[in-house]
Nucleic acid binder design. Structure first.
Lengths: 229, 229
DNA sequence: TTGCATTTCAAACATTTGTATGAAACTATC
DNA sequence: GATAGTTTCATACAAATGTTTGAAATGCAA
């Protein structure tokens, strides 16, 4: 293999165009024009359009997932094998939010691409996301170690809500900005991560529920382990 | 206008096919075949494919929005002009969740269609969603009345997170089911609504934050109004 | 019935799209 | 420098798709 030049040019051009204009509006011809390569080069190097998209997404995904696991590992080692729940949640949502938000990331093609991928959800990307469950299980396991005795169901819901807040913030940051008329600072990523982590931990450690008129019994099985008061 | 027969047949067929197979996989020819009408009928009655999709989505949307506002109004009247924050959040996320989740809704075309619309996010639908901000402002206003003195920023974040949890649950219910190996009951809609409302209210009423190492000051302006301990 | 507007229909249009082909250019090894 | 493997290129292919057209059918009022 000589230099990978064409291959990389296609990847770079594709990521930029998809980031700027979305998956629906960009054709292979747009990409090869931007990359100054021949149309047939895409199928030669990647097999198909979908495989090109998949490679783009996988590259960025394993990057984020590695960061997540690194943070998780660091937190567990610092805690002597058992990380604090707050640090686990931070390891879960931090890399994603840092990767997609923030003023420095404004011009980052990778960030804008991942935002697109989060919004549009095209088939090849959906397929990859479906395999993400195994990755999440590692966090569920860490959470279980951090909160023994907690009902598993509560764990999953907490994990689910944490991802909900993180991803929704990425997906709908424009709308939140407009709704709040700029009052919500989407550039202060640290503060956003803190916010998401805080709410997630609250959701996970809540033992009983305030102002609950006629509701389901909360945590019938789970022992109250922390600051439940 | 004779009977609207063709028009309604197209709408029904389109909603069903989109619900089952997604927007990407369904062509106008599929729709007219299912509806037993002529291909040109779509453009005659709706102008274009996108306008057909838009009409489908708008119909279901205003339905949900009306339910939301009805619940909000009822809560405000019951509270003498000022609804409890919990009821406001319930009015916000209840109709959406009830509309898309639950065992009875399993076979509901409308529900499956709205889930699709939430997942795939096709251009005509995105355009409509962008106009949703005005609708959300009414809830922001109600929240402001319910929690006077609260910083506006906190309000918007709370509103945002509530929608995050609701929509993410709809979007990713399959994954949550798989991750939790069926432990999370996605059919118990009442419980899910309670859960989302509870966490939302917690996020909104939290005065200070547990286990916070070095974080931004929370609520420097907002008075602590409720069970802050 | 006549006349006019609405609706339906079959067929064609006009593009756009990803993909395949086969020859040419290039590269590295002997 | 001949050979074989790799890469590039122009071009064609084939299929799908939303849209348009103009005539035929239908409905309705006078």
């Amino acid at each position: 293999m000589a230099s990978d030049h064409t291959r990389s040019a296609i990847l770079a051009a594709a990521e930029r165009l998809y980031a700027d204009r979305g998956f629906g509006d960009v054709t292979l011809r747009d990409i090869v024009a931007e990359a100054n390569v021949n149309l047939a080069a895409v199928n030669y190097h990647f097999g198909s359009k979908d495989e090109l998209i998949a490679e783009l997404f996988v590259t960025r995904s394993i990057q984020t997932n590695r960061e997540r696991l690194n943070e998780l590992k660091a937190a567990e080692e610092a805690g002597g094998g058992r990380a604090a729940i707050e640090d686990i949640m931070r390891a879960l949502v931090g890399p994603t939010l840092r990767g997609c938000l923030g003023p420095d990331r404004e011009g980052s093609t990778a960030a804008r691409f991942m935002i697109r991928a989060s919004i549009e959800s095209v088939p090849p990307i959906r397929r990859i996301k479906n395999r993400e469950v195994d990755h999440l299980r590692k966090f569920a396991a860490a959470m279980r170690r951090a909160m023994p005795g907690r009902d598993d169901t509560e764990l999953y819901w907490g994990l689910h809500f944490a991802l909900a807040m993180a991803h929704h913030t990425i997906r709908e940051k424009e709308r939140l900005l407009r709704l709040s008329e700029g009052k919500c600072d989407l550039d202060d990523v640290r503060a956003i991560i803190d916010r998401v982590v805080t709410v997630s931990v609250m959701a996970l450690t809540m033992g009983d529920v305030p102002n609950k008129p006629a509701a389901r019994p909360v945590l019938v099985h789970g022992r109250l382990t922390r600051q439940d008061l």
